[in-house]
């Protein structure tokens, strides 16, 4: 029995541990890059663009690696979901601050529309990383603006992230509730961020209700709108 286990290498575990390593490297890369940008601010537009590309790609990699790790943990029932009362403004402020430099170098303006007293029940690390991923994605596609808002409708929290870019492509909108199929992920052309967001949303249950995500186009800024619903 034990011999058999030794012989069959658990590839997903190897992947997970190397993802962990990569993530640490990317983290260092990002920190050094930010230090560099601090010490030697770009002097012309071309340099600025290079910095912003470097920063954007590194953040994206970082975000994806974290998502991969979380999904691995979720699949192995090792992802702690710690639901407690949190103030929405804290989470949104945090994520905007975290992506502040990225948005600035890209010339994107981020706005938060949220009652400072609005509070709800969720895992704030997990929801924070969902918001972060969507923001990073929006910075890539938007023209100049991102608006983040949160409110409670019918006992469900709705966090919405809208931009004034070209919007989500039609094939992504056609899915019933923005549902990303497991099969789609395995086909390669992934929407890992959305898949992650959906899985995290589903971890939030209240009585019979579960969280979900929804994609639309239009709304206030005319571009894509990502909505996260948590019961």
């Amino acid at each position: 029995m034990s011999k058999k286990i030794e012989n069959t290498i658990d590839f997903s575990m190897i992947l997970a541990s190397s993802v962990h390593d990569m993530k640490n490297s990317v983290g260092m890369l990002l920190a050094s890059l930010e230090g560099l940008m601090d010490e030697m601010p770009p002097v012309n537009a071309a340099q600025n663009k290079r910095f912003s590309t470097l920063h954007y790609e590194a953040s994206r990699m970082n975000g994806e690696l974290i998502q991969l790790l979380s999904l691995y943990r979720m699949q192995n029932n090792l992802l702690p979901v710690h639901i407690d009362e949190h103030y929405l403004i804290d989470i949104l402020d945090d994520q905007v601050a975290r992506n502040h430099m990225l948005a600035e170098t890209k010339g994107v303006e981020m706005n938060i529309q949220c009652d400072p007293d609005l509070h709800w029940y969720f895992d704030h690390d997990l929801i924070g990383s969902v918001v972060h991923n969507i923001l990073v994605n929006c910075v890539r596609y938007t023209q100049s603006k991102i608006e983040i808002s949160a409110k409670i409708e019918d006992e469900i929290l709705c966090v919405s992230i809208a931009d004034n870019g070209p919007g989500y492509p039609p094939e992504m909108l056609q899915r019933p509730t923005g549902k990303v199929e497991d099969a789609e992920i395995s086909k390669g052309a992934t929407h890992l961020g959305l898949y992650f967001a959906q899985k995290i949303a589903e971890c939030h249950k209240q009585q019979e209700k579960r969280g979900y995500i929804e994609l639309t186009n239009g709304a206030c800024l005319g571009g894509g709108v990502f909505k996260l619903y948590l019961p």
Binding site: G27, A31, S70, A97, D125, S129
Partner: peptide
């Protein structure tokens, strides 16, 4: 550099006041 409280699952009953995820920015 970890995404969540995972890393401190080892803590017995000794929790820090907060966790900050790297990379951190001045504003954050």
């Amino acid at each position: 550099a970890e995404s969540s409280r995972n890393i401190v699952m080892c803590s017995y009953d000794c929790e820090p006041d907060d966790y900050l995820m790297k990379p951190i920015t001045g504003k954050m």
